[in-house]
Design a protein around this nucleic acid. Structure first.
Length: 819
RNA sequence: GCCCGGAUGGCGGAAUGGUAGACGCGGCGGCCUCAAAAGCCGCUGUCCGCGAGGGCGUGUGGGUUCGACUCCCACUCCGGGCACCA
């Protein structure tokens, strides 16, 4: 009964027991209310780092808490096991990506288990497993059938370092690859796309109702980038049948259009250019071919708006006047119609360009009198606009659109910044795209019964990073499912974000043999109630997953009514060391393993929970080891209290009259309320603080001769409350004391009657400064509070015999006496 | 440039408009011990004061309020996101 706490032995034993007893396994027919807690499944990069520890500890607290609350908690785990690092390792002369990846998975799994985070391992899934590949391919083919997947030639982002194309989302704002840091090039290639733009509006609008961090929702809104405006056509002077169509958000400024601009990739750019201008224009087109949007729009583009006059004119339909048509890099072929009406007076980019090329500037919106800037984009009365004169911007917009529609040259329209998702990757270690190309039948999907198309194992990795699939004849050579003739297999693989876009649905029944998603199981467990992960996935993964959930519903592969996969999202802060995020690639990791050896998993968990608010970033400092030490000390203190030498044998019930026992009981119930509330709010740091306070208090009461029954009850409740945070120690101590398994006990409920103190300390202020504290009944009346305040000698001293001019009483919180 | 966060002791941090600094780290002191470790107990924002006590104090300047870390306005610094999307 008095032995020291042997965390190594205890942690291992309880981990085995939770697994053996299936404490955290739930099934479809579980009668309890469902609750789905999910941490973003990790890329397996080896043993867990502190970021993982933090993530899984938070998730585990919720899993254990909700389980004690009586829910059937779905707590699955898996591995996002396709991806470039494994392939890069192979290229550098390492192992085959499969061997490499599976070793890293084993390492990560081991440290996750040592942490004592509990998962239903029966549900484990890995993206690179044949089963997952098969369903990934089945989904792809359904999307293809439904027109949600398609193949198109497009200007794409090519990363020379990764030897593959990238999604727009994977290119940083400085035009480099988020993974390799290489400058991304523009290439025109046939690629596979998923039609995410079909859902642009819904993805935008349903953000409002989600319980997600506001900044994540803002980032998604920005990314989708909805803008309302108008589209209209302008005849080209001297070209009978040619028109240029433009998109604008400011149709009201039409009279101020003094020129028009075509994107360099606009099909008309070449057509309308006059022989005299050809050389100038060709230079622009040539330059644009070699740069990405980002290059064109950022760095150099800011200095000079590279452009050229085409020699052509179009007619401004508002004024009826011809205006020159330019080609310029600041207009993108991929947004809107790839052509704009330029209004220098009301658009800064147009203004800069007009200045540089000596083009006229005509105001159509009167800026405020004190405006000393260049282009005015705010509201104001219209001028130089004939039938719009005097109207404000909104009214003029409405009138302009009405006019365009009446004239039959244009209409109201909505544009999005969001583009379709480019999913093909010219790499090996990913899910093969299941189609073949037949000289006779063209592109043909592989029949479902032939899936999965697996990656060949016997491949050679080239130092250039080129996909070995392209050189693997056995893989490339295929038979056309339609005509039976020879065909060539697609060698592109899918973006790994495809894998992570539906794994949470698969978890509902990960071994279903009939469909990628078991709809009945998905109806039971989806949506995810608490999704926990890093802010780094704010746009990419979370947007794709929202899209995929809808797309799967549309093609009948998941419940159609399920639109949003993650009801609540929590983004935990990251761990920094030396100013930057702790990561394996930076080589600044502090491994959790050493702490499993020296202080145990519970102490390390407690550190991450206690160190600060869960949403905030944490700096790993010289002090961190001291704090971990402190957490370990705290746990030892609880252990001694619960099962150590000083722990009393269980006393017989007595009446509840001993000194202080009532105070202790009240404190226990206040702690129950605080801890429960704090867990719901992810305020784990204050929850732990509350447990420490209660622990200190129990020590004091026991030393002060409080009723042993109250003390022992308090200790039991303390262990119940501690169970989600330090699950091993709490389980062991609780079992020794009560013979019961704490993790399947009901979560304690605070008694409202005990939440109110018998007497409360009420500060008394004189002129707003606290001068004394008096004890009052919590239900004290205003008169009673004032009387108690004025009865204070100290208060009287400050009054100096004078009558208060005013007394503000907010019983039992405060009394403020004014003189 | 625009949009979000944030700034509190030596340090991490706590505070529905009501005693600022809970809890912990570090530090100081005491008990225990032959001694140390561990543990237990106490003190620890700052200035003045022997003390009782008092002044000052939540990035800066203003405001609202009986009362402001908290609300409002302006600013400084730090962090993050977006940044020619027409």
């Amino acid at each position: 009964m008095s032995d020291a706490y042997d965390f190594r032995e205890v942690e291992e034993r309880w981990q085995r027991r939770w697994a053996d007893e299936g404490t955290y396994q739930v099934d479809l027919d579980d009668p309890r209310p469902k609750y789905y807690v999910l941490c973003m499944y990790p890329y397996p990069s080896g043993p867990a780092h502190q970021g993982h520890v933090r993530n899984y500890t938070f998730g585990d607290v919720l899993v254990r808490y909700r389980t004690m609350k009586g829910d059937a908690v779905l707590t699955p785990f898996g591995f996002d096991s396709f991806g470039l690092p494994a392939e890069n390792a192979a290229i550098k002369g390492g192992e085959h990506p499969r061997v490499y990846t599976e070793k890293r998975i084993a390492e990560l799994k081991r440290s996750v288990q040592r942490l004592g985070a509990v998962y239903d391992w029966r549900r484990e899934l890995r993206s690179h497993d044949a089963d997952y590949i098969k369903w990934n391919q089945v989904i792809f083919e359904e999307l293809l059938r439904a027109g949600l997947a398609y193949r198109a030639k497009a200007p794409v982002n090519w990363c020379p370092g990764c030897q593959t194309v990238l999604a727009n989302e994977q290119v940083l704002s400085d035009g480099t690859c988020e993974r390799s840091g290489d400058v991304v090039e523009r290439r025109y290639l046939e690629q596979w796309f998923l039609r995410i733009t079909k859902y642009a509006d819904e993805l935008l609008e349903s953000l409002d109702a989600l319980d997600w961090p506001e900044r994540v929702k803002t980032m998604q809104r920005n990314w989708i980038g909805r803008s309302e405006g108008a589209q209209f056509r302008m005849p080209l002077v001297g070209h009978e049948h040619l028109e240029v169509e433009v998109f604008t958000t400011r149709p009201d400024t039409g009279f101020g259009m003094t020129y028009a601009v075509l994107a360099p990739e606009h099909p008309l750019a070449d057509v309308v250019t006059t022989p005299e201008q050809r050389e100038d224009v060709e230079r622009i087109l040539e330059h644009a071919r070699h740069s990405t949007d980002l290059e064109r729009l950022s760095a150099e583009g800011a200095l000079e708006k590279r452009g050229a006059f085409t020699g052509a004119h179009c007619v401004n339909p508002f004024s009826g006047e011809p205006v020159p048509v330019y080609v310029a890099e600041y207009v993108l072929g991929s947004y809107g119609t790839g052509a704009i009406m330029a209004v220098p007076a009301e658009d800064q980019r147009d203004y800069d360009f007009a200045k540089a090329y000596g083009l006229p500037i005509v105001r159509t919106v009167e800026p405020p009198g004190d405006f000393d800037g260049e282009a005015w984009t705010g509201d104001g009365a219209h001028v130089n606009s004939e039938w719009m004169n005097g109207l404000d911007v909104d009214a003029a917009k409405a009138k302009a659109i009405e006019w365009l529609e009446r004239e039959g040259i244009g209409h109201r329209t909505v544009n999005y910044r969001l583009r379709d998702w480019l999913i093909s990757r010219q790499r090996y270690w990913g899910c093969p795209i299941p189609v073949v190309y037949c000289p006779a039948d063209g592109m043909v999907p592989v029949p479902a019964e032939e899936l999965p198309i697996l990656l060949p194992e016997d491949v050679e990795f080239r130092p250039t990073g080129e996909s070995p699939l392209r050189f693997h004849e056995g893989f490339r050579r295929a038979t056309c499912p339609t005509c039976g003739g020879p065909a060539v297999r697609e060698t592109d693989t899918m973006d790994t974000f495809v894998d992570s876009s539906w794994y949470f649905l698969r978890f509902a029944n990960p071994h279903d043999e009939y469909a990628p998603v078991d709809k009945a199981a998905a109806r039971r467990f989806m949506p995810v109630d608490r999704y926990i992960g890093g802010i780094t996935h704010a746009i990419l993964h979370l947007l794709y997953a929202r899209f995929y959930t809808r797309a799967l519903g549309e093609v009948g592969l998941s419940p159609a009514e399920l639109r949003e996969p993650f009801s609540q999202l929590f983004c935990q802060g990251m761990i920094r060391l030396g100013g930057s995020a702790m990561s394996k690639s930076r080589g600044n990791v502090v491994s959790p393993d050493q702490y499993f050896e020296t202080v145990g998993a519970d102490a390390l968990r407690l550190f991450h929970l206690f160190i600060g608010p869960a949403v905030e970033d944490v700096d790993w400092t010289d002090q961190s080891d001291d704090i971990i030490e402190g957490c370990s000390r705290y746990l030892a203190r609880v252990w001694r209290l619960a099962v150590g030498e000083a722990a009393g044998s269980r006393p017989v019930e007595t009446d509840d009259s001993s000194v202080g026992s009532s105070d202790l009981r009240r404190e226990v119930h206040r702690t129950i309320a605080r801890v429960s509330d704090d867990i719901e709010r992810y305020a784990f740091n204050t929850a732990v603080a509350a447990l420490m306070e209660l622990t200190n208090s129990i020590y004091k009461h026991r030393g002060g001769g409080a009723d042993p029954v109250a003390v022992e009850d308090a200790i039991d409740t303390l262990l119940e409350l501690l169970a989600p945070f330090a699950p091993h120690l709490a389980a062991e101590a609780y079992e020794r004391r009560t013979g019961k398994h704490v993790h399947i006990q009901p979560w304690p409920v605070a008694d409202p009657a005990l939440l109110r103190a018998e007497r409360v300390k009420m500060p008394v202020q004189v002129n707003g400064k606290t001068r004394d504290v008096v004890e009052v009944d919590p239900d004290v009346s205003e008169e009673g509070a004032v009387a108690a305040a004025l009865a204070s000698d100290r208060v009287q001293g400050f009054l100096g015999g004078k009558e208060p001019t005013r007394v503000i009483a907010r019983p039992p919180k405060i009394v403020n006496v004014l003189v």
